[in-house]
Computed example of a mutant assay.
Amino acid sequence: MQKPRTCLVTQAMDILGKKWAITILLQLLSGPKRFCHLEGDTEVSGRLLSERLKELEAAGMVTRTIYPEVPPRVEYQLTEKGKDVGPIISDIYAWASKWMNDGLKQ
């Protein structure tokens, strides 16, 4: 028996729709950041930030680079796949600005 195919949009939203995922991606669009900077620039808890970064890394959207320094420096940056989400976020923002300014107006 074949496994039913999942809609590609649903697959994408499973990644992007998780709490704080878009915020993290937006922060990384400006360039590589250290964990402490991501944590300080957002309201996400350290535990959840770590979880989301691992999920985005597993999805191929973020890379993690460890520099052999004392103390160790770890930076996160977007892959090409991650950078490609920038225009999508901009489009969602434009849509929300047009249709969501007055609350959840339909």
Score class of each variant (00 low, 15 high):
residue 104 L to M: 07
residue 20 W to M: 08
residue 74 V to A: 02
residue 106 Q to Y: 09
residue 54 K to E: 13
residue 33 K to C: 13
residue 70 V to F: 11
residue 8 L to I: 10
residue 67 Y to H: 15
residue 89 I to L: 14
residue 6 T to P: 00
residue 71 P to S: 07
residue 75 E to L: 11
residue 45 S to P: 02
residue 57 E to L: 08
residue 77 Q to W: 04
residue 4 P to F: 02
residue 69 E to L: 14
residue 44 V to F: 02
residue 34 R to Y: 01
residue 26 L to M: 09
residue 54 K to I: 05
residue 11 Q to D: 11
residue 76 Y to F: 15
residue 80 E to I: 03
residue 30 S to A: 15
residue 84 D to Q: 14
residue 43 E to Y: 11
residue 34 R to H: 11
residue 93 Y to A: 12
residue 56 L to N: 02
residue 13 M to D: 03
residue 66 I to T: 12
residue 98 K to A: 15
residue 58 A to N: 13
residue 33 K to I: 03
residue 65 T to D: 11
residue 17 G to H: 01
residue 33 K to M: 15
residue 3 K to Y: 07
residue 93 Y to D: 11
residue 31 G to K: 12
residue 42 T to W: 09
residue 18 K to D: 02
residue 5 R to M: 04
residue 23 T to S: 09
residue 25 L to A: 02
residue 36 C to D: 15
residue 68 P to R: 13
residue 44 V to E: 01
residue 62 V to D: 03
residue 46 G to V: 00
residue 1 M to W: 05
residue 32 P to I: 04
residue 68 P to V: 05
residue 4 P to Q: 03
residue 5 R to I: 05
residue 35 F to S: 03
residue 38 L to I: 10
residue 90 S to D: 14
residue 75 E to A: 08
residue 61 M to R: 04
residue 58 A to T: 10
residue 18 K to G: 03
residue 89 I to P: 01
